[in-house]
Amino acid sequence: MAGHQWKENNLDKEDIELAEKMRRAQAGDGGAYAALLKELIPILKGFLYSRLGNRADNEDILQNALLAIHRSSHTYNTERSFKAWMFSIAEYKVKDFLRAHYRHAAVGWDDFDSVKDFIAAPVTEERGSGEDVQEMLKELPEKSRRIVYMMKVDDFSAAEVAEKLGMSVSAVKVAAHRAYKTLLAKGRPKRNQDAD
């Protein structure tokens, strides 16, 4: 640490160690960067748990936070607290997630799990709801259709779909949400007819 002005007021030992690893990483030490990222995983998991509780999405959000920290690694100045920098980014990603989550909750996100059953239903001679959904899916743009199949039939997570299709995770989620909205809107008049 010689030659660096550590402002040790209000910085704990862990903060100083993380800052030192980041300083070495910025200087080109790949080993220090690997050690830093691995050390951040449990810290971020604890942070996400305290903010969001135990959710199935926490792994996705953790990966988003790590990606964001990586992409903004050039903005960290080793004279400032590393944890404050890191938690600012993690908090931003949590807020991003919550914004998207509450938008989706307004259209009954959980209701779309039933789409999986419709999509997987076998095709029969008698016109059934499975065939109706298959027809509705054909009307979706190809990319949206692929995303729906991958997420609801093949059970890939949004991050996995994003990797396979070369898209960002948020773009996949937005596309999936729009596709579900379209399917729900198309399915509603048909259900009302059947009920009559």
Partner: peptide, 20 residues
Amino acid sequence: MQTEELVQQLVAQGPKKRWL
């Protein structure tokens, strides 16, 4: 993708040089 795989990819890319 598992988190460990992501970390390996990020390490392979390396951190960006410090900004102004």
